[in-house]
Design a protein around this nucleic acid. Structure first.
Length: 350
DNA sequence: AATACGGGGGT
DNA sequence: ACCCCAGTATT
């Protein structure tokens, strides 16, 4: 029967992938454990984040928060500090919220079933599938960007990955390939193949264990997959900050958790009009985010009176800190760069 | 179904 | 200048 033969072919390719993975799979710190807490942390960190970028964050995070009890007992600001520079800061806030969910709703034990895992803040279909398969052996595909790329090329499948049904579509495809009792390893294998071989640009098809089976490759049409129609155009965002300094100290406050840079620290936006006389330098900082072109107007203010400095700080919810103390707070990247530039290079004043 | 949400790396 | 990355929440 035709469909039966096709399914057997799918499974054959899946086994090939698994065999490749057992020899060529990456050795990563979180590959040595099935602790759902550690797998959870790594899955959140590596959402939209390359392994090389997040590896040190993962190690530091696990060292400081080795289990869910430690994480739940920590201050949100310290969790954010360990997230410094990773971006998508709601991930850190949700991580902390979810740790409290686990303590309060699941007796401090990481839930073992897919639907319970899915209830945790910051965990969606991908992460729930990854944890379920890797830690609890559930036969389910953890469909991420690698799956879209590998599978669309393997079958020369032009299903639009912008489509909200793409997850379920490729999930079903992957399930046909998945060998029995190997869901976790299969999912990791797809990620490794997508990351090391079946890369977005210049894929190493000559080294690919699936190149004999890859329809797009054998058609010479690798570059046509995956198909993605949706394109978001970046918008401009203008920000205005005043860096207010007195005697080696400066003003910071914490942002809200809406908009960008949730709960991170920033400089004053509005300052008294008569402080304009203390502006010693102005410069514009250009900074690109994924969907925003930032232009930050920085006014550098050096006050001559401690009274107006502390009075303004106390009346407007600002903290007065030193550069050393700023290392214990999480700043948006461009503001962190500004601080570093000023205190370590002094290039601002040149 | 669209949009918002960071930062880093590659071409 | 544009694309992508171990995606999720919100509207």
């Amino acid at each position: 029967m035709k469909t039966k033969k096709q399914n057997a072919d799918f499974l054959h390719v899946g086994r090939k992938l698994l065999d490749w993975y057992k020899i060529h799979g990456r050795e990563l710190p979180f590959r040595k454990t099935n602790d759902p807490y550690k797998i959870w942390i790594c899955e959140i960190i590596f959402q939209q984040t390359r392994i090389e970028q997040g590896l040190n964050h993962y190690r530091n995070f696990i060292e400081r928060f080795p289990d869910v009890q430690t994480l739940a007992g920590a201050e949100t600001d310290e969790v954010l500090l360990y997230w410094k520079g990773l971006g998508y800061y709601s991930r850190a806030l949700n991580l902390h919220k979810a740790s409290l969910q686990i303590i309060n709703d699941f007796n401090g034990i990481f839930p073992a079933d897919y639907d319970s895992i899915l209830q945790l803040k910051g965990i969606g279909k991908y992460t729930a599938a990854a944890i379920s398969s890797i830690c609890f052996g559930k036969k389910i595909a953890a469909v991420d960007g690698n799956f879209y790329r590998v599978l669309s090329r393997l079958f020369a499948d032009d299903f639009d990955i912008s489509n909200s049904k793409a997850f379920d579509y490729f999930s079903e495809l992957a399930l046909k390939m998945m060998p029995e009792n190997e869901a976790g390893h299969f999912n990791e294998a797809m990620m490794d193949l997508g990351s090391e071989i079946c890369k977005p640009k210049n894929p190493k098809c000559e080294s690919c264990p699936l190149n004999k089976d890859c329809v797009a490759f054998n058609l010479g049409k690798i570059s046509g997959f995956p198909v993605k129609t949706k394109k978001v155009k970046p918008t401009d965002l203008d920000l205005y900050y005043s860096f207010v300094e007195y005697n080696g100290q400066f003003l910071v406050r914490q942002r809200k958790d809406d908009f960008i840079w949730k709960k991170l620290f920033e400089f004053p936006v509005e300052i008294p009009a008569d402080w304009q006389q203390f502006v010693v330098k102005q410069k514009t900082i250009a900074h690109k985010l994924t969907h925003k072109n930032l232009s930050i107007q920085m006014s550098h203010v050096v006050l001559e009176s401690q009274d107006i400095f502390t009075e303004f700080a106390n009346g407007n919810g600002f903290s007065i800190i030193t550069y050393e103390e700023s290392h214990q707070k999480s700043f948006p990247k461009p503001l962190e760069n500004y601080l570093k530039d000023y205190y370590e290079n002094k290039s601002l004043m040149r």
